[in-house]
Simulated assay, not measured.
Amino acid sequence: MSLFLFAYFLIVLAYLAATGLSLFGALRRRPGLRRAAVRVAFGGFLLHTLLLGHFFATETIVEWSTGVYLKMLSWCVLAVSFLLWHRLRWDFLSLTVSPVALLLFASSINHAQGTVQMPKALHGLFFTLHIGVLFASIALLAVACGAGLLFVHQERKIKTKARLAGFLQDMPGLAALDRVNHWAVCLGFPLFTLGMLTGFVFARLTWGKVLSADPKEFMSLAIWALFAWLFYGRLFLDWRGKRPAKLAMLLFALAVVSIAGVNFFLQSHHGLMERP
């Protein structure tokens, strides 16, 4: 087993252990296990960071495997969740974020061979402005999605006057979960908009036009429009509760479909099916 394969194994093992510890700790109502899940996930995150750092230091950005994009997205999801955990100390984040990070990172191993081309003149700028801010915004959507799932489930329990049993008794209240959604949307939408604008600039410089008959562009515009509606509702219409929670869940699902479906299975400037 090579050193890199061993590192992959350790990262997957850490994220899997964190998922198991957070789930078991929630079901058994043991805060110590949930805190341990955060620490184990952070250990995997540090190794994940070293792995990506080594790649960026030694590999060209002209031709990346699609697995690298999934590793970056997994890293961004964890980075955002750790920032929130450090500020708010909400252990419940590990219950929703660790499985997402595990699935993204494990999927990246299966897509290690395909490559996506990028113009040589746009290496650093493309990564920093376009990929970086888009992945950060999707990571915020992942956090909002997890909080939305808990919000919808708890609200249903409360409306039916069912007793909150097990780990639900230890979860933040509806107002706290709604604040997670508000924070993630208000920060995530400007980042997504910046990612879209830089994408248009690069498309104009690379392919000679801002928009083309590319499924990725249509999907991204649809996500942006829905994201803008949610952002406007939260900021100016004082949306609260179930509506923004469900919209955040839908947006994250569409973002995953865009990455996993369009990038890997359709002919696009952004995906594996592109032909020279």
Rank of each mutant, 00 (worst) to 15 (best):
A26N: 10
A248R: 00
Q169M: 14
L149P: 01
L122I: 05
A7T: 14
P119H: 13
L150D: 00
Q154R: 06
G241I: 08
L78T: 06
L88W: 15
Y8T: 07
A228S: 06
V143E: 04
W64F: 09
F92G: 01
G166A: 05
L226F: 10
L83V: 10
R179Y: 07
A228D: 00
G208Q: 04
L254F: 08
G233P: 07
R30N: 13
R34C: 07
Y69M: 10
F265G: 00
F189M: 07
G233Q: 06
F105Q: 07
F218V: 13
V77P: 08
S98Q: 08
H111E: 14
T96M: 06
D214W: 02
A165N: 14
R34H: 02
I158E: 15
L16P: 05
T198A: 09
T49A: 10
L104I: 03
G173I: 03
K159F: 12
G43W: 08
K71C: 11
Q267A: 11
L16D: 04
L177R: 03
M273Y: 08
G148K: 00
F42A: 08
L10H: 02
A165V: 15
G173P: 02
V68W: 05
A18K: 04
Y8W: 14
L88I: 07
M196W: 09
I109K: 10
F24H: 10
V62T: 12
V97C: 11
L46Q: 01
G241D: 11
I158S: 14
L5E: 15
R39Q: 13
S268P: 04
A139L: 02
A222M: 11
L251F: 03
A106I: 10
T160L: 14
F127A: 09
F218G: 15
Q154M: 09
S65G: 12
A41F: 04
R234S: 04
F135N: 08
M219P: 03
L251N: 02
Q154W: 06
L150N: 00
L191N: 06
F92Y: 15
D178H: 05
F127L: 10
H111Y: 14
I61H: 11
R29D: 10
G20C: 03
K242Q: 15
L149T: 08
G43H: 01
F192V: 04
F42K: 00
D91V: 11
T193G: 04
E274Y: 15
L129D: 09
F227T: 01
P119N: 13
M72I: 15
G132D: 02
L168V: 09
A176F: 03
M118K: 12
V68L: 11
G146N: 05
R179F: 02
L95T: 06
G188C: 04
